[in-house]
Design a protein around this nucleic acid. Structure first.
Length: 666
RNA sequence: GGCGGCAUAGCUCAGUCGGUUAGAGCGAUGGCUUCAUAAGCCAUAGGUCACUGGUUCAAGUCCAGUUGCCGCUACCA
């Protein structure tokens, strides 16, 4: 048996605490469509998805519900698995990071990296400022003359006990590989982004301490757990690191959302480069393409947890009821945020696209051709007669569509591939309008009918092959009605689109079944004032970014003694002056009056939400005895207190009535 | 603040190495047609190609600046 070309595609593994929503479905659908494109080509295709389960929060979430961590993870992993199954996703495997096959291999990789020296323990030599109890980055330390900002005492070189991965040792090589597209990061804008960031790449922590009995321990050092991100990234490798599957490596295409670009475009390939150097892992190459799509917004607004406006499973199901599963897939693929811009999941738009592309164009065309075949030839396909006007042009259009679609698939432009398929259908509609088979008899052109109807059916057959990856359910129904056995041949690994898409595959004498693939969706007439257009240009709602995940912030203590509380000097203060800080987007410099003519200068990161003008004269709640700190060259004496609104906007706190400046809060 | 990207018809977007009247799909309007799912076909839409300046025989397409938006990054203790 000759070696079939392989194709390995992955989605991220999904955080098991999440409820599946449109974002998960989107990424997974993209991978599914691409996998099917390659299956119909006859390639040995492997499509992987799964769940990421070792986060500490999984332990918490389970505890909150009185479940064991494993039970909670099982339950949610099952939700993902079942959702994808129900949505017709054709993944070949579903990996969970809590599975032994994953854990055992990750141990092996990490051990190997430790042995090689690419993972080292804790000699993170940082400049520690004892006064501030924090590490100061090298550059900053130099700026400060290696002295504490406040104390003026010399910084101490101190080391943290942790495992680190030597990403910095691989950044130059990564930059080179990405620049030359050996490891291709797409779209282009993401590539630039990552190249820029790699320039300043530092070593990254690979482990954490103090985690409950959950996760994977660092081999040989039970006090440390492998950082969950590292653990998770390895899934792409563990799933195929077996004798039977190793030939799938490396991944041909990895789909991710733009939010996790850094992990997949820098850390992940960095780990692989390090592993590859080791004798046992010489076969490891980098993935070929990392594709970072953008996000769905909804009716012009960003989807977020705090807004609670995710398109969730319930709604996805409702869309499937109204528009069919393939209708959903079509919308996701053709209207989705494959590029750098976010896409809008808007119901009105959904219905428009569904009706225009699927009901009016594809469904209607298939139906009209079948009906004419029935009326004229009793439902049996005639053989083609001599060429007539327009027939060779139609064949050209079909061939062009096939070529275009194939090229699009190679570039992962699955939206363009779908469009190429639909273009063929449009060409059929145009051909029918031109040749008017329904009038031919009256005009004495009966002789043209076999050619006309054969061309229509044949063109639709070829279009169906291109459209199958996006619309597998409906296209298979079409195949069944027309007696094509492509579905079973693809399922058996015998896809052959190249030969199938050649002109002439439809056979004289085959039955053309009548079928209505996509019912037109009637927009419920709910009038009463014009409908408001969301998402007008230039009126995009201002979006606030989700907070970045940084070094884990020290959470609140479980308990605080009264004495500790009393140690806080909280006061009411009046903003006497406010101005934006130069070279900082978020900072406002406030001059606070505490009464008795005493004033303090405080910097606060609230500029996004408060202008200097509106701040002046306001009373605020002020923590006065916080250790002063130099920010942007200005000494900030304490902090102004604010609470987080939905979407993480800061909202300043104020006394419910005017108070004397400097009033004590207790 | 630094780096990068984008700004083209009502909407979503194409526009390759700069070169005749700037394109597609959707929507809208008008006409044709009836095989078909109130579907189809054709025509039309007068878009300062963000703004200003520059290079060139010639710029949406290159350069500089301006404005707006987006992303990464710094700053928010």
């Amino acid at each position: 048996m000759s070696q079939r070309k392989t194709f390995y595609v992955t989605t991220p593994i999904y955080y098991v605490n999440d409820q599946p929503h449109i974002g998960h479905v989107y990424t997974t659908t993209l991978a599914d469509v691409l996998a099917r494109h390659h299956r119909i080509r006859g390639e040995d295709t492997f499509f992987l998805t799964g769940t990421d389960e070792h986060a500490t929060k999984v332990v918490d979430a389970a505890a909150e519900r009185g479940l064991s961590t494993q039970d909670w993870a099982d339950k949610n992993a099952k939700a993902f698995r079942e959702t994808f199954a129900r949505l017709g996703i054709s993944n070949d495997d579903f990996i969970r990071t809590t599975e032994d096959r994953h854990k055992s291999r990750v141990l092996g990789y990490v051990k190997c990296l430790i042995d090689s020296g690419d993972v080292y323990k804790g000699d993170y030599e940082g400049w520690y400022d004892a006064g501030q109890e924090e590490y100061v980055p090298e550059l900053k330390a130099k700026e400060q003359d290696f002295k504490g900002v406040i104390s003026g005492k010399p910084l101490i070189k101190k080391s943290e006990k942790n495992y680190f991965f030597k990403l910095s040792a691989y950044s130059a090589e990564l930059i080179d590989l990405i620049e030359r597209d050996v490891f291709k990061v797409a779209p282009e804008a993401r590539k630039n982004e990552i190249l820029n960031r790699l320039k300043t790449a530092r070593d990254i922590p690979l482990s954490r301490t103090g985690v409950a009995d959950w996760g994977i321990r660092v081999p040989g050092d039970e006090e440390h757990s492998i950082y969950v991100w590292i653990d998770a990234l390895f899934n792409y490798l563990t799933a195929v690191d077996t004798k039977e599957r190793r030939h799938y490596w490396s991944a041909d295409v990895q789909f991710v959302g733009k939010d996790i670009l850094w992990f997949h475009a820098a850390i992940w390939p960095g780990l692989l480069l390090a592993l590859k150097k080791q004798t046992d892992y010489g076969w490891i190459e980098l993935p070929k393409v990392l594709y970072a799509h953008s996000f769905w917004i909804r009716e012009g607004r960003k989807m977020s947890k705090s807004l609670g406006n995710f398109v969730d499973l319930e709604e996805i199901d409702a869309y499937v009821v109204d528009f069919s599963l393939d209708g959903l897939r079509w919308f996701l693929v053709t209207q989705g945020p494959l590029g750098t811009n976010d896409g809008d999941f808007a119901r009105e738009r959904f219905a428009e696209v569904y009706n225009a592309d699927l009901a009016n164009t594809l469904g209607n065309c298939v139906n009209r051709v079948a009906t004419m075949t029935h009326q004229i030839f009793g439902g049996v396909l005639p053989g083609s007669g001599p060429d007539i006007e327009g027939s060779s042009e139609l064949r050209d259009a079909v061939a062009a569509g096939v070529t275009k679609a194939a090229a699009a698939v190679d570039e992962i432009a699955i939206d363009a591939a779908a469009a190429a398929g639909l273009e063929i259908v449009r060409a059929v509609d145009g051909f029918i309008a031109k040749t008017e088979p329904f009038r031919a008899a009256k005009q004495g052109r009966e002789a043209e009918l076999p050619t006309i109807l054969y061309h229509c059916s044949e063109a639709l057959r070829v279009a169906s092959l291109i459209l199958w990856p996006v619309l597998p359910g409906k296209i298979e129904a079409f195949w069944e009605a027309a007696g094509y056995n492509y579905a079973s041949r693809i399922a058996a690994g015998g896809g052959e689109i190249k030969s199938w898409a050649q002109w002439g595959g439809a056979r004289e004498g085959q039955k053309i079944g009548q079928i209505k693939l996509f019912q037109r969706f009637k927009v419920p007439k709910a009038e009463g004032g014009g409908k408001q257009k969301q998402n007008q240009k230039g009126q995009q709602p201002k979006k606030k970014k989700a907070p970045k995940v940084k070094a884990p912030p020290p959470g609140p203590k479980d308990e605080l003694s009264y004495e500790e509380f009393c140690a806080l000097d909280i006061r009411i203060a009046r903003v006497e002056a406010a101005e934006a800080v130069a070279k900082a987007d978020k900072l406002l410099q406030l001059t606070l009056r505490l009464g008795d003519g005493e004033t303090r200068t405080v910097l606060s990161g609230i500029r996004e939400w408060y202008s200097p003008e509106e701040m002046v004269g306001q009373q605020v709640v002020y923590l006065a005895n916080l250790a002063p700190r130099k920010i942007r060259g200005i000494m900030s004496q304490g902090m102004v207190l604010a609470a987080n609104d939905v979407g993480n906007a800061a909202v300043l706190l104020q006394p419910i009535k005017e108070l004397p400046d400097g009033a004590k809060v207790s």
